[in-house]
Amino acid sequence: MKTKTVLITGASSGIGKAFAELFAKLGYRVILASRNEEKLKELARQLQNHYNVSTIAIPVDLAQSNGAVLLHERLNDQDIKIDVLINNAGIGSFGLLHEQDVRSELEMLQLNVQSLSHLMMLFLPDMVKRGSGRILNMGSTTSFYACPLSANYSASKAFVLSLTESVANELQGTGVTVTALCPGATGTEFFRSAKMDGQKVADPKALMNPETVAKIGYKALMSGKTYVVPGFQNWLLTQAPRLFPRRFVTKITRGVLEQKL
């Protein structure tokens, strides 16, 4: 059988790294993409040594407007066809929107929204032509409700869920599926990089393991689910806007984020 190839963005740490190890165990050729070149190459070496699989590390900054094209062109130059795309790369931010650094916020939107969508548009045509392919987009529990103090981040994740649900419908009958993985608080570098590691929501005792999140995402991806929320408590959180007034949910969400450790 032909060895399948997976492309994982944001692969150098956290959930992306967990996905890389999961697919390597399954014998996939693993393409790792991230802007952290040192970590990326070390992970590629580890996967190749531990699982005897082909790995390729591609340093690329998807927070830049040309990042998706550069990544796609690099793979085209090597005639590499992608069977599975794990659109995992993303960052967050914390604080009042009017006090945020504009450049950093725009780079976050480029990474979480534009590059994610751009990669789908670049890789989907070939998948549809072949009649097979799977895409997983990284959403969040905040895909389902507004999140003051992380306004652009939660809006970006709402975009990811809406995009995924729309395209999943469009792809029916093509042999290609797209899934949104919407985890809650997870033990990754997210809170530190978003400057939220002093908030109660980042309490290590309450965080889900990234390996567990990746396994749940993989199962949903392979079964063709449109979206999945890991963990019953996280699923309950996503139902809040259906059960209570949105203004009330938004107020509670802000209160939770304001709590410090």
Rank of each mutant, 00 (worst) to 15 (best):
S132N: 11
R45L: 10
A206S: 12
S12P: 09
A20K: 00
M196L: 03
Y227E: 01
L22S: 08
L70P: 03
N36V: 08
S132A: 14
G95E: 06
V178K: 06
N88M: 04
L207T: 00
H118C: 13
R45Q: 13
K17H: 12
I15F: 11
I58H: 13
D126H: 13
F94Q: 06
K157P: 04
Q100S: 07
R35P: 12
E99F: 12
P125M: 09
S13L: 01
M138Y: 04
L136G: 04
A158F: 13
N152T: 09
T174C: 08
V201S: 07
G92S: 00
N87D: 06
N209A: 04
E42I: 05
S12Y: 03
R254S: 10
M108E: 08
Q233W: 09
P210S: 03
S34Q: 06
L257H: 13
N66S: 14
V249A: 07
G10H: 01
V228M: 01
G224H: 00
M108G: 11
V102N: 06
Q233Y: 05
A89E: 05
E73S: 09
G92Y: 00
I56A: 08
T226P: 10
V84P: 11
V228S: 03
M138T: 01
F232R: 14
L122C: 13
L85R: 08
A180D: 08
F248N: 09
L261E: 14
V6G: 03
G10L: 03
V256W: 11
G198V: 11
A206L: 10
L43G: 02
K4N: 13
A24P: 03
G231S: 02
N209S: 12
S13F: 02
A240C: 11
R35E: 15
R130F: 11
P241Y: 14
M208P: 10
F19D: 05
N88S: 04
N87P: 07
G187E: 12
T142I: 05
R247N: 15
K195S: 15
N36P: 13
S104V: 08
L96S: 14
Q100K: 07
A57C: 10
K215E: 10
S132W: 11
N66M: 09
L149S: 05
K2R: 14
S54Y: 05
H118F: 15
I58W: 05
L96K: 15
